[in-house]
Design a protein around this nucleic acid. Structure first.
Length: 286
DNA sequence: CACCATGTTCCTTG
DNA sequence: CCAAGGAACATGGT
């Protein structure tokens, strides 16, 4: 679910569905999901508030509410972690086992569900202060990318996961962007040539834009015949999920450019996939 | 039982 | 002090 394209798709789906809705009550079913706030703080801030706008920053969602009595504005920062989902559901439907937070909207519930509970919804907006530029906006340029890379000896793949370099890239699209740029994931960040940096800048935007165009890595579907509830199905391995990604999770399979066997390695505790022939840079780390 | 998983943060190591 | 690596978080799938 949770890299920039998936969050963007989710924001586009939810925005029109939430607009104008008023929150009756907030139920926090898992305290960890509102950290560093308490359930009481969230409930107090949002009870009776009206949804105004939904925006995205990196992998974060920003919900904007206005309280009825005062004209005060409240913002809630959401993050889906690894396995978070957000959707509207009819009140007739039983809550899922791992519903973390439920907003009562009247005839519907807005549900944040997360079976690993790495995500959150809180009033603390500070996490977005440390984010780098939005990759699809003007603030992200080959020059800003070069500046962000020039002082690090970390492997470029690891550096791309640093949200202060550029916001929203995750483990899947880091491998995808490097494959398209034909840059080794093991190349030290400060060893990219300016040509490589520009190429990487372009392929980052390419993979993210294409993913948004496709819908998302994990298909976002409407349950047919079940109101307008939105559900994510993680059926990786079939459908456009597998066809779309060119290297991620393809260890042992032939490179789509040159047939060389795709390698799977671990970097900083995360899996990386690459073609050892197409992505054969010099000055590799380790 | 083992290992893997789209993310972030905290602690330790060098 | 800093950069980098690893564990923790929590649950489920294979």
């Amino acid at each position: 679910m949770p890299e920039l394209p998936e969050v963007e798709i989710l924001a586009r789906h939810l925005r029109p569905l939430l607009r104008g809705k008023t929150i009756r009550t907030v139920t926090v079913r898992r305290e960890r999901a509102v950290r560093p706030n308490t359930p009481v703080e969230l409930r107090k801030a949002l009870a009776g508030a009206k949804f105004m706008e939904l925006s995205r920053r990196g992998k974060y969602l920003l919900f904007h509410f206005r309280s009825k009595a005062s004209h005060k504005t409240t913002a809630v920062l959401g993050h889906l972690g690894m396995t978070g989902r957000m959707y509207l559901a009819s009140k007739n439907e039983a809550l899922p086992k791992h519903a973390a937070i439920v907003f009562d909207l009247g005839h519907q519930n807005f549900i944040y569900e997360d079976f690993r509970y790495f995500g959150r919804m809180s009033l603390d907006l500070s996490p977005i202060d440390n984010l780098g530029p939005e990759p699809l906006e003007k603030s992200f340029s080959p020059q800003t990318l070069a500046a962000a890379l020039k002082n690090s000896r970390q492997p470029i793949k690891v550096k791309l996961l640093d949200q202060a370099v550029v916001a929203g890239i995750g483990n899947i699209y880091a491998s995808e962007a490097l494959f398209r740029a034909r840059i080794s994931p093991k190349l030290a960040a400060n060893r990219l040539t300016s040509i490589q940096t520009k190429k990487l800048w372009r392929t980052i935007r390419e993979v993210l834009n294409e993913a948004i165009g496709y819908g998302s890595t994990v298909p976002l579907k409407t349950m047919s015949g079940k109101s307008d509830a939105l559900f994510y199905f993680s059926d990786g391995g079939e459908g456009f999920y597998e066809e779309r990604l060119r290297v991620y999770n393809r260890a042992g399979k032939p490179c789509l450019n040159c047939e060389t066997v795709i390698k799977g390695i671990r970097q900083a505790g995360r899996s990386t996939f690459f073609c050892p022939k197409c992505q054969n840079s010099r000055f590799l780390t380790k």
